[in-house]
Simulated scan of single mutants.
Amino acid sequence: MNHPHSRLRAGNPEAFRDLFRDHSSLVYRHAVRVTGNWALAEDVVSLTFLEAWRLRGKLRDEGDSPRPWLMGIAVNVLRNTTRAARRHSAAMSRVPAADPVPDFADELVGRMADSEELAAARKALARLRRPEREVFALCVWSGLGYAEAAATLGVPVGTVRSRLSRARTRLRKLADEELRRAKRTTEPLPPPGQTQGSRDTAARPHKETHR
């Protein structure tokens, strides 16, 4: 009995339509989270599936799902794409946007509560080393299991676990720093003469405990 991947290796058009139907949204959501740019994410999807067609002969029979193979291609496309877009993205991140995340943000960013937190998380994520950043994006934002992420990146499962642990530890600290920095630059100063009483806390930002 032929393995289901054999139809993909043979270049069967129906098999590739099924691959796109079943997994293009995963690639897209992952690319949106990594790049923060929907138009760029669409390009990543197109390039990923073009590369999947070109590299179809390298798909092996291990496992029932082509997700690790496909996401491995997506990760490589993202590495190349984000290098080219890095300076543009850095410039755009300094420009305040009126509505950077629309109503379906919850679907796209998981537990991120609002656009401010998403922006802080993306800036914090950009400060991690690439291996930790990729593992975090695959496991936390895109929901791949340890084994799938390991197969995607071509590393042992233990490496995925240790990288994710380091990423979580660093991100807690970095995201807090980014949120505090964002609040300092966006919160209005209290009106003159209103620094007494309850306003005293405004003069002691280091005492804040929320977030």
Score class of each variant (00 low, 15 high):
residue 180 R to M: 15
residue 47 L to W: 01
residue 153 L to A: 11
residue 109 V to P: 00
residue 30 H to G: 01
residue 85 A to S: 09
residue 94 R to G: 05
residue 12 N to R: 10
residue 166 R to V: 02
residue 188 P to A: 04
residue 190 P to I: 07
residue 198 S to T: 07
residue 94 R to C: 01
residue 34 V to I: 04
residue 169 T to A: 14
residue 96 P to Y: 07
residue 151 A to S: 14
residue 49 F to G: 03
residue 54 R to H: 10
residue 146 Y to N: 15
residue 93 S to Y: 05
residue 142 S to H: 02
residue 16 F to E: 01
residue 12 N to Y: 03
residue 197 G to P: 03
residue 90 A to H: 11
residue 190 P to R: 08
residue 154 G to S: 09
residue 105 A to E: 14
residue 145 G to H: 02
residue 57 G to V: 04
residue 33 R to F: 13
residue 163 R to A: 08
residue 137 A to E: 14
residue 29 R to K: 12
residue 34 V to W: 10
residue 84 A to S: 12
residue 29 R to A: 02
residue 131 P to H: 00
residue 104 F to E: 12
residue 197 G to H: 03
residue 93 S to L: 12
residue 152 T to I: 03
residue 115 S to W: 03
residue 135 V to E: 02
residue 44 V to R: 05
residue 161 R to K: 15
residue 21 R to E: 15
residue 210 H to W: 13
residue 58 K to F: 09
residue 201 T to A: 14
residue 169 T to C: 05
residue 199 R to G: 15
residue 6 S to V: 10
residue 6 S to L: 13
residue 4 P to H: 06
residue 198 S to Q: 08
residue 81 T to R: 13
residue 165 S to M: 06
residue 139 C to D: 03
residue 83 R to D: 12
residue 82 T to D: 10
residue 138 L to T: 09
residue 113 A to W: 03
residue 163 R to Y: 09
residue 161 R to L: 12
residue 9 R to S: 05
residue 13 P to M: 00
residue 32 V to P: 01
residue 113 A to R: 14
residue 155 V to I: 15
residue 81 T to P: 02
residue 78 L to R: 06
residue 183 K to T: 13
residue 54 R to P: 04
residue 52 A to T: 08
residue 34 V to K: 05
residue 91 A to F: 15
residue 56 R to S: 05
residue 132 E to Y: 09
residue 44 V to Y: 06
residue 161 R to T: 15
residue 199 R to F: 08
residue 44 V to T: 08
residue 63 G to T: 07
residue 115 S to F: 01
residue 204 R to Q: 05
residue 142 S to W: 03
residue 172 R to Y: 06
residue 65 S to D: 07
residue 193 G to Y: 02
residue 4 P to G: 07
residue 51 E to C: 09
residue 170 R to A: 15
residue 185 T to Q: 14
residue 190 P to A: 11
residue 164 L to F: 10
residue 19 L to D: 07
residue 13 P to Q: 00
residue 64 D to T: 07
residue 119 A to Q: 13
residue 174 L to N: 05
residue 71 M to P: 06
residue 31 A to R: 04
residue 30 H to D: 03
residue 144 L to D: 03
residue 49 F to H: 04
residue 177 E to F: 11
residue 25 S to W: 04
residue 34 V to R: 12
residue 49 F to R: 03
residue 77 V to K: 08
residue 77 V to E: 09
residue 120 A to H: 03
residue 71 M to C: 08
residue 150 A to D: 06
residue 165 S to P: 00
residue 53 W to H: 12
residue 90 A to M: 14
residue 180 R to P: 11
residue 138 L to H: 10
residue 166 R to I: 04
residue 138 L to R: 09
residue 176 D to M: 10
residue 208 E to A: 15
residue 24 S to D: 04
residue 79 R to G: 07
residue 78 L to D: 09
residue 168 R to Q: 11
residue 70 L to V: 06
residue 101 V to C: 14
residue 27 V to I: 10
residue 164 L to Y: 08
residue 172 R to E: 13
residue 13 P to H: 00
residue 90 A to T: 13
residue 107 E to C: 00
